[in-house]
Design a protein around this nucleic acid. Sequence first.
DNA 1: GCCCAGGAGATGT
DNA 2: ACATCTCATGGG
Length: 275
Amino acid sequence: MIIGKESIDLKLVLLESAQCFRWTELDGRFGCVLNGNPVWLTQTPEGIDAEGVFDVAVLRHYLDLNRDYREIAREYDDIPLAKRAIEMFPGMRVLNQPPWETLITFILSANNNVKRIRSLVDALCRRFGKSFRCDGGVLWSFPAPEQLADTSETELRGMRMGYRAPFLIETARRIEAGFPLTELKNMSYNDALAALTTLPGVGDKVANCVLLFGCEHNSAFPVDVWVDKLLRSWFGVECKGRAAMTKEARRRLGMNGGILQQFLFHAARTGAIEL
DNA sequence: GCCCAGGAGATGT
DNA sequence: ACATCTCATGGG
């Protein structure tokens, strides 16, 4: 059924935008297991078509279809570079992912490239997730905290997780021990950031990614190598460390700075804008 | 071989 | 508080 006619480029957002590393493409359809249910999405002239088991409201929220991105662009009328970046990718959306998946996948993202992050996430799901067969394709759910908490560093290193292996296990154990993952979205940005950065493998950058992509903190502003270069060359920001860059970018770019950040990141990473 | 990728943690000053 | 090193891995 059609779940929306809003502007969204599924391939761009689900496969190429580097905010989510879980979706697979199979002859024009995009599949993933969300909330334990397999879903296939297709881009059609009538809108976004969804098949499988899903709740329309939940799916629309996941895809961030309820947000007016033209309104966000308008907030940056006085910052032409920002406005231009948003208007450059009309199909881009900032997903609202489950915090647990966002946390683990971005721990894996540290000092890593998108292709390999996707491959590592896929390996985790195939090893620890549940399989769903539908229409010739097989989809895998994301492992539960308990499953990562109970595995061994040796096994994860054998799956090429490298030095991030102990981070995954220890963080999973912290979640099992009661870390308030689902409360982060109700906490202040500063409190949520402070809580997240107590987790092993979670520094300032990864924490901002979790807050932005998994906790609806739209002011969270991850600064990676690309955004760092872009902030310096476009905006003339002169800060020493990445945490200081985040603080300055948040001060300048406001409550929806994180949404903007996704557009800036994509523009920089794909070379759409010269740095 | 070297450098890089949506960095973080440990150590030294 | 800040700079520097090391940590796996695969691709260019």
